[in-house]
């Protein structure tokens, strides 16, 4: 889920930091500029890994800073497509489940990527997977299609809930960057103020459709679950 990205930049060191070794001052400068920030089409920067090369510091006309041309490697959070990761359920609503890895929480699982058949229980405010221990005779997970109302009529003991703070194993399906460049405010928008929901600049879509993915406890140790898994495989 982490990668090393090689980046280049021209950075300045304030005279206040001339006392520190240049490498140390530059490290601070890089971390200050990049840590916890999202780079378009690169990912979310965590921290500096190392400095590859740096030029001599130069003073330019107009300020007292030392300017360095630096090439460095960043630790970047960018899970690759089809990677399997462990994460925590942050919240659920009708549109799907929101997942968090602590430092990054724009991870979504739309309802289509939840284990089938599943439904949203408005009373519990969470999704559940209908996985009966002894299914009715006419029920076959592969062919039977249950409507949302059918699913909400099922007995609670057959529902496997995806609750808040559950640890889930999920597969990365896709990721998307959105460049939220500030432009001139349009007439209507300016009046409405912050009427529009802000889109995250980096978001990841994951799934828990396959056997083995989903809440970790579903698959730990229980032999019965593995039978289901084998059937599907």
């Amino acid at each position: 889920m982490f990668v090393l990205s090689i980046l280049g930049d021209t950075l300045s060191v304030h005279p206040r930091n001339f006392g520190a070794p240049p490498a140390q001052a530059l490290t601070n400068q890089i971390n200050k500029k990049y840590a916890n920030r999202i780079l378009h089409n690169v990912g979310m920067c965590m921290c500096l890994f190392d400095i590859v090369s740096a030029s001599e510091g130069k003073v330019r006309y107009g300020d007292g800073m030392l300017w360095y041309k630096v090439k460095f490697r960043m630790v970047v959070f960018r899970p690759f497509t089809s990677e399997v990761i462990l994460a925590k359920v942050k919240s659920s609503d009708e549109s799907g489940v929101r997942i968090s890895v602590g430092f990054f929480d724009d991870i979504h699982i739309p309802t289509a990527y939840l284990p089938s058949p599943s439904a949203f229980d408005p009373n519990e405010r969470s999704h559940f997977w209908y996985n009966p221990a002894d299914p009715p005779d006419d029920y076959d997970p592969a062919t039977t299609t249950l409507s949302q109302t059918d699913l909400l009529d099922t007995s609670k003991s057959d529902r496997w809930y995806i609750e808040k703070n559950d640890i889930v194993r999920i597969r990365v399906e896709s990721d998307e960057f959105y460049d939220d460049e500030p432009g001139p405010p349009k007439g209507e928008k300016a009046v409405e103020g912050e009427g529009k929901v802000k889109r995250p600049s980096y978001s990841v879509v994951c799934s828990m459709v396959e056997p083995g993915t989903g809440v970790v406890d579903w698959w730990s140790g229980a032999g019965g679950d593995e039978d289901v898994e084998m059937d599907d495989a």
């Binding site: 889920m1 982490f2 090393l4 990205s5 090689i6 980046l7 280049g8 930049d9 089409n41 965590m46």
Partner: peptide, 17 residues
């Protein structure tokens, strides 16, 4: 800022930690 190589190597969780 320029991106020289967005994905030069993979890091394991243990290394990052």
């Amino acid at each position: 800022m320029e991106v020289i190589n967005a994905r030069s190597a993979l890091l394991s969780n243990y290394e990052v930690l």
